Simulated scan of single mutants.
Amino acid sequence: MNRNTWEQLVVHNPMLIEIQRFRRRYLSFGGSNTLNSAVLGLGLVCYAGLVLMVMNGQGDISPLWIIMLQTGLYTLFAPGMLHGAIAGERERRSWDLLLVAPITKAQIVVGKFIGALAALAAATAMFLFPVAIAAVTYRRTNWHDLLLCELLSISFAIAVCSMTLLISARVKRPFMALGASLGALGVVLVVAPILLAVVFSTSGMRDVDLLYFLHPFYALGQISVLSEGSSYGRSGGMVSPVFWGWPQILVYLGLSAVMIAWASNTLNFAENEVKFIPKGHRDA
């Protein structure tokens, strides 16, 4: 990416106003949306409960398990936040205004994505507090593995945001985007692992590390096993420290870049076209 492209998409992108929109919608009690205020209030109560639980259980709660909880919440939070990013514009009839505005479709997608990253950064900052308390008091904290798990959790959340944005760009109703995003995550994180477990249990095979390579919770669990000083993972196969952490992070970030570019190219089509692999089209 050259300097002009970087400035166009990131530095001088008019769609960076999405950062303020996400802040007002998800991190503020103001506005007319009572449901968002209620969800935010409930989230703050749950967060206070988590902090109190960590403080009361000092020395007994591993920070890696808090990061697992964080990853699970990101899995639900990202689709809930981004499912209407583009599909919602279509439903509200504001999409036509964006199309005639003096901005490119790539700026629209990247601006929406950066707005989601800002909200994700705020959530990560909040989680760092209980994670830090647990890390300081836990007697077997491995700071390298802790950092690795945190980066893995964040990179997976970025991948989920990218996937949701891509799906939102492909449908015309936010509810359809939300259902498709949660359905895809359910298949990848729940249905496929269960089916694989059944197949492997009946065939007598135990080493499933390679098949679960991109499963974030499995990867976090394996890093936790290594952090506790064990040489064997839950699958019974030998666990290599090189196999868990950075490879997943790089794959998640690579997939995110591909899906963001895909979403941007998707917007080049007319509303009545259904194509997932655009060819020969350029931004207007």
Rank of each mutant, 00 (worst) to 15 (best):
M1C: 11
W6A: 07
I17M: 09
I19T: 05
Q20A: 10
R21Y: 07
L35E: 12
V39I: 13
L40E: 03
L44D: 00
G49S: 08
M55T: 13
N56V: 02
G59E: 03
D60K: 10
I67C: 02
M68A: 13
T71R: 00
A78Y: 03
M81R: 01
L82E: 04
G84C: 01
A85S: 14
I86R: 00
G88L: 01
E91V: 08
S94N: 12
S94F: 08
L98V: 11
L99R: 14
A101C: 12
T104S: 13
I108K: 02
G115K: 00
A116Q: 05
A119R: 00
L120Q: 14
A121I: 09
T137L: 03
H144W: 11
D145F: 08
L147T: 13
S155D: 06
L166W: 05
L166D: 03
F175A: 15
F175Q: 14
L178Y: 05
G183C: 04
A184P: 05
G186I: 09
V187M: 14
V191I: 15
F200H: 15
G204R: 09
D207L: 05
A219R: 03
G221Y: 07
G221C: 09
S224T: 11
E228M: 14
E228C: 06
R234G: 14
S235V: 10
Q248T: 12
A257N: 02
V258H: 05
S264I: 02
F269P: 02
V274S: 06
F276T: 11
F276P: 02
G280L: 13
H281N: 14
R282K: 08
A284C: 10
